[in-house]
Design a protein around this nucleic acid. Structure first.
Length: 349
DNA sequence: ATCCGGGCGC
DNA sequence: GCGCCCGGAT
């Protein structure tokens, strides 16, 4: 006995489903990788990352043997780099603690670092056909509209109500298809903007369509405050070698590499950089010359706006900068870097 | 130029 | 609850 919602959804899916590289995949390892990539990421953006990642790391052991830095390198540009570090940590855990066998219950899958309720439900249903509904942004949007749920979806209560509803609606005989259908429906038909209610399979049952509430549902509280940061990167060059440092601590881009960074409270105009006391203090024991100062690169993150200037400095004697490494500049390709660094390097290195 | 979407760890 | 990233749409 299947409910009307699931029945309509599966009918829609039959003729509208997307062909995706990880669709119909049965290997839990590959499902895990695809779902981590898809966290906070659109299909179009994750598509090639997935193919390249799986080609280089076809199984757990290849990740284990490669190490965190190479995993980060394959993640470069995708954002939310914690995901890549968690994949490495997860591979170590699965090999060392789980004997390389992917766990096959929801609760055990949930123990993998970086796997929360959404990803655990995805793996449990796709790989093991267990009846756990995935609750992602698509599902929250679709069900808040179809069933007229006004509790904000970015609160615990809103998520709890929709999770309870999804648990009732999910097909117990084919949870995998139900989950994939929900997400495709959200991504293709019941989109955040410019939705196509007139041709929708749910047009005569959907609460939002019947009450013209498409633009008010889902409700969100929306509260992100952004702060400005000012980065001055020291692109210091000596005989075709450059200095790099690894980002550590509780800040953005942890684990990625960048030029030695001078962060300030305020922007500093280009004309004041040439004899700035800070720069003078950096180069007391060597000849140095500013070869080029880049325009301001504006880089926008969720809650930070970074204004970055790259100062290209030529030196003649080596520096002894703490926490930095000196590499041949052509070796930069082996180091994971932020999109901001990548854009500068592409243009100016 | 700005807005928007998208799960997890702490 | 807050901080994490980027590209595409507007």
């Amino acid at each position: 006995m299947i409910n009307a919602f699931a029945s309509t959804l599966l009918k829609w899916y039959d003729t509208h489903k997307r062909e995706l590289p990880w669709r119909n995949e049965t290997d839990p390892y590959k499902i895990w990788i695809s779902e981590i990539i898809l966290q906070q990421t659109r299909v179009a953006q994750g598509w090639n990352y997935y193919l390249r990642f799986i080609e280089r790391f076809p199984n757990l052991q290849t990740i284990y043997d490669a190490g965190e830095q190479e995993v980060l390198k394959y993640w470069q540009g995708l954002g939310y780099y914690t995901r890549a570090r968690n994949i490495y940590a997860g591979a170590v855990y699965l090999i060392e603690t789980c004997k390389g066998i992917f766990p096959n219950t929801y609760d055990e899958i949930l123990k993998i670092k970086g796997v929360g309720s959404y990803t655990a439900a995805a793996i449990a249903s796709f790989a093991f056909h267990l009846p756990y509904p995935v609750i992602d942004g698509n599902v929250l949007r679709v069900l808040s509209r179809s069933h007229g749920i006004y509790d904000p979806i970015d609160t615990a209560l809103g998520k709890k109500k929709i999770t309870a509803l999804a648990n009732k609606l999910i097909s117990k005989t084919n949870p995998s298809i139900f989950n994939q259908a929900m997400m495709d429906f959200g991504a293709i038909q019941c989109t955040p903007q410019q939705l196509q209610c007139e041709h929708c399979y749910f047009s005569n049952s959907c609460y939002a369509n019947l009450h013209c509430e498409q633009n008010t549902l889902p409700v969100k509280i929306h509260k992100t405050k952004t702060k400005n940061r000012f980065f001055f990167y020291l692109h210091i060059e000596k005989d075709n070698h450059i200095y790099l440092q690894k980002r550590i601590g509780k800040d953005i881009w942890k684990g990625l590499y960048e030029f030695p960074l001078w962060e300030t409270e305020e922007h500093i105009a280009e004309k004041h950089l040439y004899n700035h006391p800070y720069l003078l203090s950096c180069f007391v024991d060597t000849d140095w010359k500013i070869k080029h100062i880049s325009p301001v690169f504006k880089h926008v993150l969720t809650h930070q706006i970074i204004s970055a200037v790259f100062i290209h400095i030529i030196i003649t004697k080596p520096l002894h900068l703490p926490q930095t490494i000196l590499i041949d500049k052509t070796d930069i390709v082996n180091y994971p870097v932020s999109r901001l660094m990548e854009k500068y390097l592409t243009e100016y290195l």
